[in-house]
Design a protein around this nucleic acid. Structure first.
Lengths: 224, 224
DNA sequence: AATTTTTAGTGAACGGTGTTTACTTTTTGA
DNA sequence: TCAAAAAGTAAACACCGTTCACTAAAAATT
């Protein structure tokens, strides 16, 4: 019992083979998902794509939800990476903070199905599993992204650029909600910021910048 | 052909009977929908509730989507009514504008399934029917609600409370997106503004007020 | 090396969905 | 009264996620 961990090296050939197939399933799923979203991804069609029987998928994933959850987590990894890249630059704070939130929206725009699914699946899975010994929100990629945002706001307060009476955690949630709203709008209304397919409004890029600016303005203190 | 409209009074008994049944279907659907949302509402269970065969529904609605669309439109009617009630009060503008957007979020919170469905179904139906002679966005309840918001911002600009360089239409969309984000957060994360079922954050009501204040601040001009 | 045990993979089925088709019954209008 | 239109239905179609009983292959144990 003591030397149990010596039975295999860090991963046996069998384990490596297994996770290779898992990855192949995920990869095929990712392709379909990016094109057709969560509803368009069916276990049956997925199985057909990789020449397996539908039941075979269940040897690697306990449910479709679990499979999709992995795609979502990978997506949040992508967001986190990109946001961190902005945070770590040395551009002036006011510019950097605006870039940071705009980038968040930008990525959501590029993978709309991922973004929509990442937030619309929550209720079902969150309500039914309050498993107490879980990894926990703080360590999930989503949680990490939130912490980056909160840190940024704390920095702004220290610099005197943001109002001193702000609670960074509350302000971060508010700012996040604001960006989330724009992301969702773009995801669900393809022509946004145009309300109809036809004409006249500013470009999406400019709108994102405006919205980010607007949200950051709300946090700023006004000393002149 | 000229006196066609005299064939019946404004509505024949047959027509009244028909729309009564239609209303009965919608009413039963509304009940299920409020409890279980769009996915939980099935034509088959609905038919069972009102002692009809599933196929019978299709004599009144051409698809499930059309049925759900009517529920959504009614919901937007509710939002519009409530927002208008605030707009028409004579409280000071800065308070009134905050109340207005907070009310929007409040109603979304009270009927989460309606709100979520109203925005998550859009892409599919919007992309495939650019019927050019349509009723049009401007006259839909959603469109009217937007116009109210834009009008409010225009008023703020005239009063000198909001920045003069704002485009009311753009600012309205940004403000709307901001409120939409909070509404969606609350809808999909039941514990929001708490990120986890357990502890410590401000009350939801206070958070909504904070968020509304934050968004309006972004619009304000700073004269002192 | 032989044998047991575990794992990978499958076909068929269960219960569910939205929707269509062919059919019967009822209601309506001339 | 009688043809036409509308209301209503049972049965089927084509999907869906998931489970079950089963076989074939690989791994582990003796």
């Amino acid at each position: 019992m003591t030397a149990e961990y010596m039975t295999t090296s860090v991963s046996s050939p069998a384990e490596r083979r297994r996770s290779k197939i898992r990855a192949r399933i995920l990869s095929a799923a990712e392709t379909v998902f990016a094109r057709d979203g969560a509803e368009g991804l069916s276990i049956r069609r997925l199985a057909e794509n990789i020449d397996y029987s539908p039941a075979a998928i269940y040897k690697y994933f306990s449910s479709k939800d679990e499979l999709v959850d992995e795609l979502k987590e990978t997506f949040f990894e992508l967001i986190l990476e990109n946001v961190n890249r902005i945070v770590d630059t040395s551009t002036p704070f006011s510019e950097r903070s605006r870039d940071c939130v705009a980038t968040y929206v930008q990525i959501a725009t590029e993978k709309p199905h991922h973004y929509a699914a990442a937030f619309t699946g929550e209720a079902a899975s969150n309500g039914s599993k309050p498993v107490d010994g879980e990894p926990g929100f703080e360590m999930s990629k989503k949680g990490q992204a939130f912490n980056v945002l909160r840190g940024m706001i704390a920095e702004g307060i220290e610099l005197g650029q943001f109002r001193a009476d702000l609670d960074p955690a509350v302000a971060a949630k508010s700012l996040w909600a604001s960006m989330h709203g724009l992301a969702m709008m773009i995801v669900h209304i393809p022509s946004f910021p145009a309300l109809r397919p036809d004409q006249p409004t500013i470009s999406r890029e400019d709108f994102i910048a405006f919205h980010a600016d607007q949200a950051i303005r709300g946090l700023e203190s006004h000393h002149e």
